[in-house]
């Protein structure tokens, strides 16, 4: 479609809005305000709508943060205490086992030492009896025969 310059001039030339234009505009504005007010009355408040939603708890996030932090701190504290107790008991058990083992080893060493010394004493006595030396350890070496 082709518009001539005259067509455009005709279309854009000033026109008289007619009488009562101002009143009509004001009346339309009032009507629009009334419609908006009515629409707002009929619908629930935006905050109330949000509070029923899935993420409503987020509205109370400072309280939740405090609660969750407290729970986490308590949880970590309890776990740490339990772990420390476990380590302590384990260490005590290991120490006791080592002590018990050392004790048994020491007792075995003592018994073996006593046995060895008794054998030594017995054999020395026997040899001295065989050589008809008095079995008196104090001067045994002094009276050596060889």
């Amino acid at each position: 479609m082709h518009f001539s310059e005259d067509d455009l001039r005709q279309a854009l030339k000033r026109k008289d809005p007619g009488s009562g234009f101002t009143q009509r505009v004001m009346a339309r504005m009032e009507q629009a305000k009334t419609e908006d007010a009515a629409a707002m009355k009929g619908k629930p408040a935006p905050s109330a709508k949000k509070s029923n939603g899935f993420f409503a708890w987020w509205q109370l996030r400072p309280a939740w943060i405090v609660a969750v932090t407290a729970v986490l701190l308590l949880g970590f504290g309890w776990a740490g205490y339990q772990y420390a107790e476990y380590r302590h008991q384990k260490q005590a058990a290991i120490t006791a086992a080592i002590h018990e083992k050392e004790l048994q080893e020491a007792e075995r060493a003592r018994d073996q030492a006593i046995l060895a010394l008794q054998i030594a004493r017995s054999k020395l006595n026997h040899v001295l009896q065989q050589t008809q030396l008095p079995a008196d350890g104090n001067d045994k070496i002094r009276r050596q025969r060889l």
């Binding site: 007792e107 075995r108 003592r110 018994d111 073996q112 006593i114 046995l115 060895a116 010394l117 008794q118 054998i119 030594a120 004493r121 054999k123 020395l124 006595n125 079995a135 008196d136 350890g137 104090n138 045994k140 070496i141």
Partner: peptide, 26 residues
């Protein structure tokens, strides 16, 4: 019997008989 060290023979000879330990240990 081989004992290493400064052996106090008089003390060894004077050891009491009751020091003999249980035979199961030695």
């Amino acid at each position: 019997v081989n004992i290493v060290g400064d052996v106090p023979l008089e003390k060894v000879m004077a050891l009491e008989e009751h020091f003999v330990p249980e035979r199961s240990h030695g």
